[in-house]
Simulated assay, not measured.
Amino acid sequence: MKRPILSALALSTACAAAIPAGAADHRSFGTWRNPKNSVHVRAQPCGKTMCGVVVWASDKAKADAARGSDAPLVGSTLFRDFRQERPEVWRGKVYVPDIGKTFSGTISVKDANHLEGKGCLVGRVGCKSQIWTRIGG
């Protein structure tokens, strides 16, 4: 995927979480950067699910996002309705602003500082994955 936000699709899949009464994997909460360090997303509880809000983006990522959406990239919710599927694995929806589309994705907690995000464009076609790194340890 060329654009930084499309690469968010892979992570996007990286921020899912239903938060069943005290059972959610809180290791997925926090602020994460994509491999190119062009987008930072804060994964946080949103009601009974987890969401991911963009807290910082490079100028290039902002420009790419502006091609597909009128909404500002910083402050937008890219990861929505992520629910815990099993320990350390989440599933939800990822919004990709540079193309104005929402996709399904998953994230897996690899360790305390890394998430692997996987996403597919349609069904299991065009799948990509990325490793995102926690910011601030």
Rank of each mutant, 00 (worst) to 15 (best):
A21H: 02
A21M: 12
G22I: 02
A23C: 06
A23Q: 14
A24G: 15
H26T: 12
H26G: 10
R27F: 07
S28M: 15
S28D: 07
S28T: 15
S28F: 04
F29D: 04
G30N: 11
G30Q: 05
G30D: 03
G30I: 08
G30A: 04
T31V: 15
T31A: 08
W32H: 11
N34P: 00
P35A: 15
K36H: 14
N37M: 08
S38P: 00
V39F: 04
H40S: 12
H40K: 15
V41E: 01
R42E: 14
R42V: 09
A43K: 05
P45L: 03
P45C: 02
C46P: 11
G47C: 05
G47L: 07
K48Q: 13
K48M: 10
M50L: 12
M50F: 11
M50W: 01
G52Q: 02
V54L: 08
V54I: 10
V55N: 05
W56T: 01
A57W: 02
S58W: 01
S58K: 07
D59E: 15
D59C: 05
D59L: 05
K60M: 13
K60D: 09
A61T: 06
A61R: 08
A61I: 06
A63M: 07
D64E: 14
A65F: 08
A65W: 07
A66F: 03
A66N: 05
A66V: 01
R67G: 06
R67D: 01
R67M: 11
G68F: 14
S69L: 00
S69A: 13
S69P: 03
D70P: 14
A71V: 13
A71L: 10
P72C: 03
P72F: 00
P72H: 09
L73Q: 06
L73S: 02
G75L: 03
G75Y: 13
S76M: 10
L78M: 10
F79P: 00
F79L: 02
R80L: 04
D81W: 14
F82V: 09
F82N: 02
F82A: 06
F82M: 04
R83N: 04
R83M: 09
E88R: 14
V89N: 04
V89R: 05
V89K: 06
K93M: 05
K93N: 11
K93L: 13
V94H: 08
V96F: 06
V96E: 04
V96M: 03
P97M: 08
D98L: 06
D98M: 06
I99R: 08
I99F: 04
G100M: 09
G100W: 10
G100C: 07
K101I: 05
F103C: 08
G105S: 14
G105F: 11
G105P: 05
T106R: 15
S108Q: 15
V109G: 11
K110V: 14
D111L: 08
A112H: 13
A112G: 09
H114C: 12
L115H: 03
L115Q: 02
L115F: 00
L115E: 00
E116R: 12
E116D: 02
G117S: 11
G117N: 05
G117F: 03
G117Y: 07
K118G: 02
K118A: 06
K118Y: 10
G119H: 01
G119D: 03
C120K: 03
C120S: 06
L121E: 10
V122D: 01
V122W: 08
G123H: 07
G123D: 01
R124V: 12
R124H: 04
R124M: 04
V125H: 03
V125L: 07
V125K: 08
G126C: 08
G126K: 12
G126P: 03
